[in-house]
């Protein structure tokens, strides 16, 4: 597995990129999703997503898990800042205030 997004780019670079994206797509939430390195989950094709502002975390995870083609019996846990998010909340609620990205990490 390659470097994580945070390791690869500095805070300033990430901030700049998110500001550009938000300027371009004001109704979307930029989200970075990465696979936890110690899992047997399939590698994801893409890690940057633009999520509609009115989409809940649960809906978003559902879309991701179908992209991963997870079998129903497969465990899936998602972390935002090392915490399990409330699936009923909007994705935007998990936006980091200093950095306009929402970073999610998958674990088995």
């Amino acid at each position: 597995m390659g470097k994580s997004f945070k390791d690869e780019f500095t805070f300033e670079q990430r901030l700049e990129e998110s500001q550009d994206i938000i300027a371009k797509y004001p109704l979307r939430v930029p989200v970075v999703v990465e696979r936890y390195c110690k899992t047997d989950l399939p590698e994801m094709e893409k890690k940057k997503y633009l999520v509609p502002r009115d989409m809940s975390v649960g809906q978003f995870i559902h879309i991701l898990s179908s992209r991963l083609r997870l079998t129903p019996g497969k465990a899936l846990f998602v972390f935002v800042k090392d915490t399990l998010p409330q699936t009923g909340q909007l994705t935007i609620c998990y936006h980091s205030s200093s950095l306009k990205f929402c970073c999610m990490v998958f674990s088995p």
């Binding site: 809940s56 975390v57 649960g58 809906q59 995870i61 559902h62 898990s65 129903p72 019996g73 899936l76 846990f77 998602v78 399990l84 998010p85 409330q86 699936t87 009923g88 998958f106």
Partner: peptide, 13 residues
Amino acid sequence: SGCEDGERGGAPV
């Protein structure tokens, strides 16, 4: 743990 084919992966409800 949410439904198997629906929302899951976050805090359990």
